[in-house]
Write a protein that binds this DNA or RNA. Structure first.
Length: 377
DNA sequence: GAGTCGTGGCA
DNA sequence: TTGCCAAGACT
């Protein structure tokens, strides 16, 4: 458990980081692209946006989303003044959409408070929606170079191997926080925390860590034990259920299609979708679609040909979407299980935020419509 | 405290 | 191909 003398651990990691770390992360640089000096503050807004996007999401995925959001909303005032629709438009495809709503709500709260809005304490940041201890510490060390230890997945993995922790980190988080605090270099917290994450992301990787490139190899208990890839120990995850979803792309006489906005809470909250629902045992998929549209929208439809079938895996369930074109027959659509419903022209679909699976349905629909406009030559 | 909450990359 | 997994927070 004792990580041993700390100072050589710190200096060896920082030396490694100078040559092998990531030094091109935009929110960790000055506006002119140069590296900040020790203690020099960075734009907390850009850091905040980045750290929220980085929750359970890798850096390479976040980068384009961060650039687009910062271009649209350069400061907290612009974000606070934006509509939730516009925020979700920039977040679509990134996942975990509650993060976007909480970021937006946090911006409005900070602006409403007035003055210099940026907290300088862990408690101040954690009071904002969507900010836990890990994200708060990341923001404070990144933006203000304050000596707060961090404990994201990278740090948990690096530390678990360093001390060869025998159990799942989740069960000993207090212990891991103390270890992160112990190793943290209090004189260069921003650089040290970034170095620790870069080590986890690039060298001390989940599978097949590159121990030959690791500055801590000589101090790593898991390396000494011979099988660092085995750590950290993880709890067995429950099997994910599989469900078939019948989806209707309903068109009216004018060629408009019917979409609904999902409820604010729960899966894909606040995003738009084509309506549908779970297939019941023994039920034909056409019957599923008819039933779901009747129950959730109070409309009657004629189910036509299949548009596309696609499978999509979420964190805790796998779904197969069977999508059929439908013709609207009767009934004014009612938002019985959604926030609102709307008839839109196909070319208008691009101005609504959709989850990834629905984006694929839209692509298939637009392809089909173009093909039908241009009969086979 | 165990479940819920996305997506794309990779072996 | 299938499964695993990532810079976590909230209930």
């Amino acid at each position: 458990m004792d990580p041993g003398p700390i100072e050589p651990l710190r200096s060896s990691l920082l030396d490694w980081w100078e040559d092998h770390g990531r030094h091109d992360i935009p929110w960790k640089l000055r506006p002119d692209g140069s590296r900040p000096g020790p203690g020099e503050p960075l734009d907390p807004f850009g850091v905040w946006v980045a750290e929220v996007m980085l929750q359970q999401t890798q850096l390479a995925v976040v980068l384009p989303y961060w650039h687009r959001l910062m271009a649209a909303f350069p400061d907290v005032g612009a974000l606070a003044a934006a509509s939730e629709h516009d925020v979700l438009m920039l977040w679509q495809g990134l996942g975990y959409y509650a993060r976007a709503r909480r970021l937006h709500g946090g911006a409005q709260r900070l602006v409403a408070a007035g003055g210099d809005p940026w907290p300088r304490t862990l408690e101040g940041w954690m009071a904002l929606p969507g900010i836990g201890r890990s994200t708060a510490a990341s923001i404070l060390s990144s933006a203000f170079d304050l000596p707060h230890p961090i404990l994201d997945g990278n740090v948990q993995r690096v530390v678990a191997r360093l001390v060869a922790h025998p159990g799942p980190p989740k069960r000993d988080m207090a212990h891991f926080w103390r270890l992160s605090e112990t190793v943290l270099d209090p004189h260069r917290p921003r650089a040290f925390n970034q170095a620790l994450m870069d080590l986890g992301a690039g060298v001390c990787t989940p599978r097949q860590p590159c121990c030959g490139a690791c500055p801590w190899r000589g101090r790593c208990a898991a390396y000494a034990a011979g099988d660092p890839g085995r750590l950290p120990v993880k709890d067995t995850s429950p099997p994910v259920p599989f469900q078939v979803i019948g989806v209707g792309v309903v068109r009216d006489k004018d060629g408009r299609v019917l979409i609904d906005q999902r409820l604010q809470e729960g899966l894909l909250g606040g995003l738009w979708e084509f309506p549908g629902g779970k297939q019941e045992p023994g039920e034909a998929i056409e019957a599923t679609i008819q039933r779901e549209l009747r129950e959730e929208l109070a409309i009657e439809v004629a189910v036509g040909e299949e548009l596309i079938t696609l499978e999509h895996a979420y964190s805790h369930k796998r779904l197969r979407f069977v999508v059929h074109l439908c013709r609207w027959r009767s009934g004014e659509p009612q938002p019985l299980a959604s926030q609102q419903v709307r008839w839109v022209a196909p070319e208008e679909l691009s101005s609504y935020p959709f989850p990834a699976a629905n984006a694929r349905i839209i692509s298939a629909l637009l392809l089909r419509l173009r093909a039908s406009q241009r009969p086979a030559e």
